[in-house]
Computed example of a mutant assay.
Amino acid sequence: MSDPSFTLVQLRYFEAAARHLSMTAASKELMVSQSAVSTAIAQLEKEMGVTVEVYGLTLGVVLAAILGTYAVWSAEIFPTRTRQGGLSIAYNLTAALFAGTVPYLITVLIATTGSTLVPGPYLMVSAAIGLIAAFSLRETAGKPLQQKED
Rank of each mutant, 00 (worst) to 15 (best):
V54H: 07
S38V: 05
Q34C: 04
A64K: 06
L93V: 07
V108A: 14
A99H: 12
V37W: 04
A26L: 01
G68K: 00
F6E: 00
L30N: 02
L44V: 06
S136D: 07
A128K: 01
R81W: 09
G142Y: 06
I110T: 08
T116V: 15
I110N: 04
L30Y: 03
H20F: 08
A111K: 14
R19I: 05
Q84S: 10
M31W: 06
A141C: 12
P103N: 03
A26S: 02
T112D: 11
I106W: 04
L105H: 13
F98I: 02
S22H: 03
V52E: 00
L131S: 07
T82V: 14
L8S: 12
E139H: 10
K148N: 13
G142L: 05
A17W: 01
A95K: 12
A16Y: 04
T7M: 02
T112G: 09
A64C: 09
F14A: 13
L109I: 04
A71W: 08
S35A: 15
L11M: 08
A75F: 14
E76V: 10
T94W: 13
E149N: 11
G130M: 04
L8W: 09
A65C: 12
G86P: 00
Q43G: 05
A16G: 05
Q147K: 15
A133V: 09
P121G: 03
L87G: 09
I77R: 06
A64G: 07
T51S: 01
Y70R: 08
A25H: 06
Y70C: 10
F135L: 12
A99K: 12
E53A: 14
R138T: 15
V72S: 07
L137W: 03
E76S: 12
S136A: 10
F135M: 08
R81N: 10
V50S: 12
Y13K: 04
T51L: 03
